[in-house]
Each structure stands twice: as structure tokens, then as C-alpha cells.
Design a protein around this nucleic acid. Sequence first.
DNA 1: CATCGGACCTGTTAGC
DNA 2: TGCTAACAGGTCCGAT
Length: 270
Amino acid sequence: MPELPEVETTRRGLQPHLLGARIVDVDVRQPQLRWPVPADLAAHLRGQQVLALRRRSKYLLIDVAAGSALVHLGMSGSLRLDAVNDPRRTHDHLQLSLDSGLLLRYNDPRRFGSWLWQPAGQSHPLLANLGPEPFADEFDGARMWRLSRGRRAAVKVFLMDAATVVGVGNIYASEALFRAGIDPRRAAGRISQARYCRLAEVVREVLAEAINQGGTTLRDFLRPEGVPGYFAQSLRVYDRHGQACRQCGEPIRRVVLGQRASYYCPTCQR
DNA sequence: CATCGGACCTGTTAGC
DNA sequence: TGCTAACAGGTCCGAT
């Protein structure tokens, strides 16, 4: 479900409620997530004050003095703020009770997400080899061009590789390639530096617009306050198989690349 | 190295 | 209407 805009939207929604709050209790009801929830996670968090809520790639980091809870939402995860008396729902696997009386609940039907512990001053192995953030200076067309030389994989697969840039998942990869006018099937190594510069630009553009709209709600993404994101109405190709291209009217096509559905306009993208 | 397929799960939808 | 298969916003890991 969540790509960078949805995770960032979640972070922004939670921040005012979490910052400075004390975690009075931690309840792990289902520790079997993508990786088992560490047995000592609750002990690390209980009684601690939240010092910051950060995002790196699609991970949320809940900082306390001794380290951070690393939260990944996987495909179907979400975080929700509840009042103490709100009943638990199906697939609520973990909750933090805050001294404000609010509950931070983690819900994840498919359990592809994770809650891990990262001691202060250390970088968790899962974060160690990530590429640059899309809004960092380090991410630009020259970097993509350099990294892609000799690569025969489809440019969409290359764009979704976290070593290229983090945060660009299946929706925004299709959307960015449409905006850049690049055919997603094209070999990454056969694209010019100029086109990669344009691609870097539109990656930032589409992510920024999506964040401003509160993310994309296709089926079930809800912000922590319980409201959907509105970027779905701005999607130009994703999930629009057979529908007219908003730019030229040609039917949008669907093709599978790297085992993921990909959408593109055969005339606008070359 | 780069690339590919499988794995982890449950829920919803498309198609017969 | 009902059953089944395909598919879903992620991404790691091992085999080739």
C-alpha cells in the first residue's frame, strides 16, 4: 500500500501527537510480521519519551533516548490513532499507549510490514545499503545515468530499486515515467543523461504533489486521522488500463515488468 | 555483478 | 450466484 508519500503523510499526521509523548505501555499481540518483532522491543520503548519521528525511505523511525523503533508498513500496513476506549480491529498487531491517553495502533492484514529495534548510534542493516532520498541533492540525473550504464533491466525496475533512489514504488514509478515520456520497458542502460535529468525532476515533482494531496488512496490507505489521501484523482496512468490517456486519448496499456503491473501510454512514452 | 523467481501473508475482485 | 484464480501500494534472499 504505502510508498514514500503515504509514509510521509503518516509521519506528518502522527508527529504532533507523538512528539514529547511518553509511551506508557507496549502491547505486541502478533509478533509474526515480515520479521519477528524483537522480544525486547517493548522493554526498549516502555516508559520512554518520543524525541522525534523521522522517515528514511519507507521506514518510520520513532526515536527514544536509547534508539529507534523502525516501522515499515509493507504492502498493507497502516498506523492509526485511537482513543483508549476504541475497540481493537482485526489485524491490529501492535499498539503503543501514550500518556496523553491516545493509542497508536499498527494494523497490517498481510503482515509484510515490520517493527524492529535500532540502538542509538547504529544503522540497522536494512537501512545500511539504501540509496539516496529523492529530495536529497545526491539524487539527480547524472547519478541515475552513471548507475544505469550496462544495465539491461527495464528502466521501471531500475527506478524502483532502492539502490537507485528510495521511496519510489509501483504507483509513482509508472507516474514518473509517464511524466518524463519514457517507455517503462526501455532498458535502463540505453537512456540518455538528459532524459534521466528529466526523470529525476519528475520523480520529485510527483512525490511532492502526492504528499501535498495526503497520498494515494486506491483501496484502503487512510491517514492516521482516518481520512483518505486524494492523489488517486491525479494519477495519469496507474491502474488506468484500457482507459484513455489524459494527454492524447490513446488507451493506457498494462504490462508486467519485474513481476509488477506497469502502466504506460504507447504514444506519449517512448 | 546483474537478473530472476520465490518467499512472506490475507483480502478483494475478475472471470468462468 | 458461487467457486477459483489472479492480483494487490514491498522487498529480501538465494539460485543462476
